[in-house]
């Protein structure tokens, strides 16, 4: 379990450029949860996930992961983080070597590394035949998968995904989310999904925390959130297109999928 308790953070403290990024943030992420963190650019999302991953030192408050303080180096083995556009960080000559890079640094045996590479490739839906390809010859969607597989090969118990589908076409996005969330959920990994895509949040997150100007303005289910237009507006977010459409049709119930929307309309016929 991740416990974030009363965390505040200020950049360039004590200078004229001082800027508060986070104010009194508290929330938990339970085992196996898909917790979305939503908010627009500058809301504090990036600062928050870097603190949770132990990449930025705490200034006040506390973060514990499985009861270990976040400053403990051991948490590096528990938490994996996939940054935006992770494929920009690919550099090895083959897919296999790229995915194996971080596990190698953990000092695992060759057999263990090889098994982890295979499993990570399966989890992100990469064909095993691509192992010896250069990552740079793959499509954008495939490169993204290689980069994510490199983190999954570390077998994190907690996985932070920062806008994992940004820039992908609709099909690549759909496939990636489906395979990724299917595979990860089965393995019991807790996911923190950072996104401003309400459609993705609607479909994959069981809970969502909304940040605005460094504060948590909502913590609940996506369905509850989409009914609260004033909170979305305050956070600079928009309800998913399906919610907006139903509202335009004069239906005030919330649908998370087209299936639900279809049923709602038919039931009112």
């Amino acid at each position: 379990m991740i416990k974030v308790n009363d965390v505040s953070y200020t950049y360039m403290r004590g200078t004229p450029f001082e800027k508060t990024a986070l104010k009194n943030i508290s929330f938990d992420a339970a085992r196996g949860e898909v917790l979305a963190v939503a908010g627009h650019t500058g809301s504090g999302k990036s600062t928050l996930i870097q603190i949770v991953a132990g990449l930025i030192d705490l200034q006040s408050g506390s973060v514990t992961i499985d009861d270990l303080p976040v400053a403990d180096k051991k948490i590096r083995r528990l938490v994996g983080i996939v940054f935006q556009y992770p494929e920009h960080q690919l550099f090895e000559e083959t897919v296999e070597r790229d995915i194996a890079f971080a596990p190698k640094n953990f000092g695992l045996s060759d057999a263990e590394i090889s098994a982890r590479v295979d499993e990570a490739m399966r989890q992100v839906g990469l064909d095993a035949g691509l192992k010896n390809s250069s990552p740079f010859e793959l499509s954008g969607g495939q490169r993204r998968r290689v980069a994510i597989a490199g983190i999954l090969a570390l077998k994190p118990k907690y996985l932070i995904l920062d806008e994992p589908t940004a820039g992908l076409d609709p099909l690549a996005k759909e496939n990636l989310l489906h395979e990724l969330f299917g595979a990860i959920k089965r393995s019991g990994v807790t996911i923190i999904l950072v996104s401003h895509n309400m459609e993705d949040i609607a479909r994959f997150a069981n809970r969502v925390v909304v940040l605005a100007q460094g504060e948590i303005v909502f913590n609940g289910t996506p369905r509850e959130l989409f009914a609260r237009e004033e909170i979305l507006a305050r956070a600079g977010l928009e309800p998913p297109p399906i919610t907006q459409l139903l509202r335009r049709l004069g239906i005030n119930q919330i649908a998370l999928t087209l299936d639900e929307a279809e049923k709602l309309i038919i039931s009112r016929r």
Binding site: T41, A166, G236, L237, E238
Partner: peptide, 11 residues
């Protein structure tokens, strides 16, 4: 060329 791919809804 995909000028909004990296932007939030407001952007």
């Amino acid at each position: 060329d995909e000028p909004t791919a990296m932007l939030d809804p407001i952007g």
